[in-house]
Design a protein around this nucleic acid. Structure first.
Lengths: 151, 151
DNA sequence: ACTGAAATCAGATCGGC
DNA sequence: GCCGATCTGATTTCAGT
């Protein structure tokens, strides 16, 4: 793993880029007291070190017609540690995590309707080793945000 | 809510921007068979309609020193519908959702260590109406990705 | 490691199709 | 709604400190 040590300037730049990755290096630099060139250098190094991955856009799920969000506990009768691809093959699944506890995988699912959610559950049962699911439907999302560099 | 109807070109542009929001409009347009100007127009309209929100950077949580991920079911003895700010005030919380089921709020928490996770649980108990928590620690994250425009 | 300027390239606007 | 060109402004590089 790469050597660490993000100083306060790096963390400030990361926070600013999380808020708006499209702003000019001159503006970024002004906010942290650096020139555009120096800011460019630091951001480039953060990318090279893998601290910053891709720059992307946040999409409104509702605008894509995805109004239903649910978390599904997936119980298994076998070792699920190498089933990442099977879950990734279901596009409605946004996240999949192996967890400690009774269930073995926790997945986050977004669909247009509850009928489509049911269809995802059906496809989950088709994954090797899956013995059961417990879906929890989200009624309201308070917020979803990126990891805070300040913690 | 805004009138919808994303055509196939819009969905393709969204997918391309999710992969790399930093690429030139000329390159984007080439991929979908449009000129740079027309591509610029469509993306601008997607922003105006709120389909695309901010452009941001993906950060490696481990690089920020956040090696522990957990999901916490928060039980409550009162209506939690207006407690969004109380959860948002805890920076380690990345997501907070009101859910159907026994617990009332599900939160996603990222911390440096399990000791810091315990500290977050302590702060959760301090939130008005919170009567209990059940933390589930993630052993391995298969993947985390944005909503797919293709669904 | 940062500065300041120079050169290149992409973003943004506009008239016309 | 898309094209092509133009102008503006940012990105990127580099010699100097």
């Amino acid at each position: 793993m790469a050597s660490e040590n993000l100083d306060e300037t790096d963390r400030a730049l990361i926070a600013l880029l999380q808020q708006d990755a499209g702003q000019a290096y001159a503006a970024l630099g002004k906010a942290v007291g650096l020139s555009a060139g120096a800011t460019h250098d630091r951001v480039r190094k953060l990318r090279e070190r893998g601290v910053l991955r891709r720059t992307t856009v946040e999409v409104d799920p509702a605008a894509l017609g995805l109004g239903v969000l649910a978390f599904v506990m997936v119980d298994s009768s076998a070792w699920m540690g190498d089933s990442a691809e099977a879950f990734a093959a279901i596009p409605e699944i946004e996240e999949a995590h192996v967890i400690a506890g009774s269930a073995s995988v926790l997945v986050k699912v977004r669909t247009a309707t509850t009928e489509r959610l049911q269809d995802v559950l059906r496809r989950l049962y088709a994954v090797d080793g899956v013995s059961g699911t417990q879906a929890t439907v989200v009624l309201e999302t308070f917020f979803e945000r990126p990891p805070s560099p300040g913690v």
